[in-house]
Design a protein around this nucleic acid. Structure first.
Lengths: 280, 280
DNA sequence: GCATTTTTGGAAATTTTATTCCAATTCCGT
DNA sequence: ACGGAATTGGAATAAAATTTCCAAAAATGC
């Protein structure tokens, strides 16, 4: 047997390594331990066991399985981790920058931090820039639609795939217009007049998306547009238009806010449909 | 007498206020408590008493002096403080939600705001949970790869499409393994031994992704894994494993953090490749 | 300086907590 | 389906911790 893990990181690797060889209940504990290290640090066996839905003795057995004399010994690792003031991430950035010299200024971690920060700010602005009325109307349209078609290319394709996934997840008929085999027009032709279409289009506003969306609108299909400017060419013919200003760092546009909106729409729709079902 | 302090900050002011009226030993305890809050959080009365050079019962008396039923009750404040400083993101989400009131959350705008908040918190956590070393290694691998293959299904497919888009955007050869025509194996077979593979896999860890990734690894291709737990089945065979805990609201998992990481990786790679070009 | 009150430290008691043991159950291979 | 091994959950046990009590010591007021 290997040495008993002396740090939380070691323990976590050990758990990951042996995870497959553990029994069902011990795996359950492993999962809980990985997910709630703080709870382990403070809790007593009784409350942890209850929270993890296992028997207290299972916790002791789990600790034994990794070589500790008892649960308490293992618990100490979790407490140490919490006590040792791990430098905040800003601190880590500063250290990383110092180590590599100021000139570089762009270590991966710094970039990550920049993106995270920028995305976080963008998310806060999102709520202020999106109107309740537009959200309601969009949900109305989606709730009334028989099927929902989703279109977007390049960066917007990511958003489209998310919509397709999310809508199917909540049991809505969703078709992703992906242009496989160059069949944009054919896929657009399959949009029925009781359907709805969600188009995502960012500068420079790919013609494929425009064509598909316009074809749908001409047939009287309501268009929900997610874009980056009021001046977007599709804005004029959209039933609802969301303008999302996503974060941008070093010329790369993020998608966090756009996806956040997509998610909020999806769940709102799920709730609405559920309510209809219940109330009818 | 004033109300019993309910937060560590309150307690500390109360201690400062009453400090002069305390007896000699209690002042000694006050000093220690102010100086070593962490020790109080985890220690037992016995070891704390020894460390502070006072009698255990003095600690209890100290707690009583501030209105607590016993030492343990006071100790809880110190534990709370530690948890809040280093909270798991689910815990912070829970706190944030409680602050906003549980009853709400049904209008689309409220949902949007919940998602935005949750995603924002998750983003902050992201930087703390991702290690500089893993990022560097991932960029190394990607920079050395002739082509990069990207795989992911369902929700993770969104991430895969983003990678495919971003990598192509920075002039890297990128292939999206999308299983069109049921050809996962065939697409996996096209992975060359100088390539790299990026797999994104979330619970419940779709077998398609696992098969593709394992096939690549068996051929000696480095695997960069983005997943939601160290216990992910692919973690064992990954060259680099990023564990991302994305936000979750009402059972819907967000993707903001995961995409943020994807973006950071992409740009880091762009910079690295650029530097190589310049320096050569 | 003596008497009284307050404070302190030791020890016991009580409560809480962790651990061990054993029977019941589940799981697995035949 | 059956028998054996492994796993699990409950109860008992042991350990540890907190709290309370009390007497000794110190501080305070007269």
């Amino acid at each position: 047997m290997n040495a008993v893990p002396q740090t939380l990181a070691d323990l976590k690797s050990a758990i990951a390594e042996q995870h497959s060889t553990l029994s069902k209940r011990l795996r359950q504990v492993a999962q809980y331990v990985m997910d709630n290290p703080n709870a382990i640090a403070f809790g007593t066996v009784a409350v942890i066991a209850k929270d993890a839905s296992v028997h207290p003795s299972t916790l002791v057995r789990f600790a034994n399985a990794f070589g500790y004399s008892g649960f308490s010994e293992m618990q100490r690792l979790f407490q140490q981790k919490l006590i040792q003031e791990s430098p905040s991430y800003t601190e880590r950035i500063r250290i990383a920058r110092e180590e590599l010299g100021d000139d570089s200024g762009d270590t991966p971690l710094q970039l990550l931090s920049q993106f995270a920060g920028a995305s976080s700010v963008a998310l806060e602005e999102l709520c202020e820039s999106i109107s309740e009325r537009d959200l309601e109307r969009a949900v109305d349209i989606l709730a009334a639609a028989e099927s929902t078609h989703v279109v977007g290319v390049r960066r917007a394709f990511v958003v489209a795939t998310y919509f397709a996934y999310a809508l199917r997840h909540i049991d809505r008929r969703a078709y992703l217009i992906d242009g496989v085999g160059g069949m944009y027009n054919e896929q657009a032709g399959a949009i029925g007049d009781k359907d709805a279409i969600i188009a995502t289009s960012f500068h420079p506003y790919a013609p494929e998306t425009q064509n598909v969306a316009k074809a749908a609108v001409e047939r009287g299909v309501p268009l929900i547009l997610i874009t980056d400017s009021q001046l977007s060419p599709l804005a004029a013919c959209a039933s609802v238009c969301f303008v999302v200003r996503d974060a941008e760092v070093h010329g790369f546009r993020a998608l966090g806010s756009t996806l956040c909106l997509a998610q909020a729409l999806s769940i709102s729709l799920a709730y609405r449909v559920d309510k209809q079902r219940v109330s009818v």
